[in-house]
Computed example of a mutant assay.
Amino acid sequence: MIRGIRGATTVKNNDADEIIQVTREMIEAMASENDIDPETIASVMISVTPDLNATFPAKALRLIDGWKYVPVMCMPEINVPGSLPKCIRVMMTVNTSKNQKEIEHIYLNDAIKLRPDLIEENK
Rank of each mutant, 00 (worst) to 15 (best):
residue 51 D to C: 00
residue 104 E to N: 12
residue 50 P to N: 08
residue 89 R to H: 05
residue 17 D to M: 07
residue 46 I to A: 05
residue 49 T to D: 10
residue 69 Y to V: 01
residue 32 S to D: 14
residue 29 A to L: 11
residue 37 D to A: 07
residue 45 M to R: 12
residue 88 I to K: 05
residue 29 A to T: 10
residue 1 M to L: 09
residue 34 N to H: 03
residue 44 V to T: 11
residue 94 V to M: 01
residue 46 I to T: 12
residue 52 L to D: 01
residue 54 A to Q: 10
residue 9 T to W: 06
residue 32 S to N: 13
residue 39 E to C: 03
residue 16 A to F: 05
residue 83 S to I: 00
residue 95 N to Q: 12
residue 86 K to M: 08
residue 80 V to R: 05
residue 101 K to F: 08
residue 115 R to P: 00
residue 66 G to E: 07
residue 98 K to I: 01
residue 6 R to N: 10
residue 95 N to W: 13
residue 22 V to Q: 12
residue 39 E to K: 12
residue 74 C to R: 13
residue 19 I to R: 01
residue 3 R to T: 02
residue 32 S to E: 14
residue 47 S to R: 09
residue 92 M to Q: 09
residue 23 T to G: 11
residue 44 V to Y: 06
residue 101 K to E: 15
residue 96 T to D: 04
residue 122 N to A: 13
residue 118 L to I: 11
residue 41 I to K: 03
residue 40 T to H: 11
residue 104 E to Y: 12
residue 105 H to C: 06
residue 101 K to C: 02
residue 99 N to C: 08
residue 52 L to K: 00
residue 119 I to Y: 06
residue 23 T to V: 04
residue 47 S to Y: 02
residue 89 R to D: 04
residue 27 I to G: 04
residue 4 G to S: 12
residue 121 E to L: 11
residue 20 I to C: 03
residue 24 R to F: 02
residue 55 T to D: 14
residue 108 L to W: 03
residue 11 V to L: 00
residue 122 N to T: 14
residue 97 S to D: 15
residue 67 W to C: 08
residue 19 I to N: 00
residue 46 I to W: 10
residue 20 I to N: 10
residue 119 I to S: 05
residue 20 I to S: 07
residue 12 K to D: 14
residue 11 V to I: 00
residue 64 I to Y: 09
residue 47 S to W: 07
residue 78 I to T: 11
residue 12 K to S: 13
residue 14 N to F: 02
residue 78 I to N: 08
residue 90 V to W: 03
residue 48 V to Y: 01
residue 113 K to C: 04
residue 113 K to G: 04
residue 30 M to A: 06
residue 16 A to I: 03
residue 117 D to I: 00
residue 21 Q to N: 14
residue 23 T to W: 06
residue 21 Q to E: 15
residue 62 R to P: 04
residue 20 I to Y: 11
residue 110 D to G: 01
residue 27 I to Q: 06
residue 94 V to S: 02
residue 74 C to M: 12
residue 119 I to T: 10
residue 100 Q to T: 12
residue 2 I to E: 14
residue 49 T to M: 02
residue 99 N to K: 12
